[in-house]
Every structure is written in C-alpha cells, then in structure tokens.
Amino acid sequence: MQKIKLGYYPGCSLEGSSREYNESVQAIAEKLGIELVSIPDWNCCGATAAHNLNKELSLSLPARNLALAEEAGLKELVVPCAACYSRFTTTQHELMHDETMHQKVNGIIGKEYKGNLRILNVIQFIEEFIIDKLDDNIKFEFNKKVACYYGCLLVRPNKILNFDRTEDPQTMDVVMKKLGADSIDWAYKTECCGAGFSVSFTEAVGRLSGKIVEDADHRGAEALIVACPMCHSNLDMRRPEIDKYNGKKLNIPVLYITQAIGLALGIDRNILGLQRHFVTVKLNDFKPFAKKIEVENLQITEEI
C-alpha cells in the first residue's frame, strides 16, 4: 500500500485534555497507511479568546500556522479539533477576501501565507482518505444506536465552511452507518454545547450540554458520537453539571468518531484512549463484520 502523507495540526487540546482524540486519529491513520505530518513548531490557534478580544490577533495566530504549513510544503492540512478548524478556515477566508488585512497579518507574523492550503476537518479527512478503505478493514460491526452530534463549528457559518447541511448535517451519520451503526434522527445535532464557557460559566454548559445528552438518551441512543474536543469535554467531563441540570444521572458515553472507527477496525480500546473518558465506555459485544454495508450517499450541499 502506498503511504499517503498529509499535514496535521493537532492543536492544544489534543495534546492535553483531549489526548485520546489525538491517539485515536493517529491510530486509525496508522492502521490505514496514512502518515500525518505535524506542522513544525505550531502554536495555539487562539480559540474563542483571541477573537473575543482582538481581531488581528485572532487572524494572526492561525495565519502563522498556515504559513508554517505552507513553508513545510504541505498541501492538505488535517485539523481534527473543530474549533481550530473553524479558526483556520475563517482566517483563510478573511485573508483571501481582504487584501489589506492579508498584508497586515503577513506583516504581523513576519511570514507570508499564500493561501494554497486545503484545510480538512476530521470528517472531511475521513470522507476523503478513510471511508473507501473501511470495507476491506472493518473487523467488527458497530451495531449500536448512536446520536451523531456535530455542534456549531463544523457546520457554521456555512458560507465560509461550505460543509454539509447547516441544520441537518449527514456526513457523520453516513460514516457511522457504514460502520454498521443505527444513527438516529434527533433534535440537538447542531445545537451549541456551550464550549466557550467550559470553565468560565459552567451553569450554562450544564444547561446546554444537559439538553443534548438528555435528548440523545431519551431517544434511545447508546452513544453520542462527536468530532470536536470542546464538545467531548463538555459532554463527558461536565456530567456532574449535566446531571444536576437534568435532575437524573445519565450514563450514555461520548465517543469521538475516530474512536468508533478504531473500535470497528479492531484497535485496542486503550490505544484509542477510551480509558481516559469520565463516562465509562461499556460498549463491547460487537458483531463480527460480515458484509459490506451499502449507505445511500446523501446530497449534502445546502439547497437554497
């Protein structure tokens, strides 16, 4: 198998509180013969804090990374963290549409970003490089009822990201169905979990994430599937606040989509970092994978 080489930006969370996300992305990439090359000497994207306080800072921090990636000769950049992905894509959009700002930011970072990078979120990465290899590599069928949770930053703002349908996205569901899961239709697919307030305003996080966990649980989902470290830490770590808001204890686990793929590929649970979760992931009894699962490819562009 020819090895595919892709640029990779893990981001801060994936090196700290969400390291299992990084572990699972790396694990499935390795299993399927993809090499992820980190941007040399990358820095934090600035997240919510930067754009809340200063516009130029919020563009310069991602721009430095983009410029470094370009310097390193990378063409595609996989950005698993939805928040980083959003900041990167927004920065690219702003710089490419505002020449004055582009020049200014180039000056600030002391580098020149030309805009030749293709930025991929984890689902785009899966769609483009993983999904075709699944049929030949799946060992277990992920025969669970799951609720795919997209959150805000993967799908909005649609004009810039241009990814999937804003209100009823389907790409994660398609991937999960391919693994053999039954992905449910539910109400909180794209509602915000309160990410920006994960530390500073935990009551709001309890309420917002609480509604999400409750609706998924209420509709019989056995796992929540996410593709964003913010979503994951809110839905997983903030369970005390969530349970307090709902007035009951809910045990539905939260898995990264890469972990779900990893499980289906038969990768060890600990390599995928499942032991790091606060809500114990009890899912096991998977059926051996028998036959290819045909999933209807949905038209996922917003038709307006």
Binding site: S13, S17, W42, N43, C44, A50, L53, F197
Partner: peptide, 22 residues
Amino acid sequence: KNIISFHKAFLDSIEQTGKLYE
C-alpha cells in the same frame, strides 16, 4: 469579568508558551 478573565488567562498562556498550558 469571569469570561474576560478566562480569555485573558488563555491568551497569556499562549503569549508565554505559544500553546495552551491547561
């Protein structure tokens, strides 16, 4: 002020280390 404190602390961390030191 909590929210701003958080943002400022966050940016301080980046300024010092380039990455978020949780």
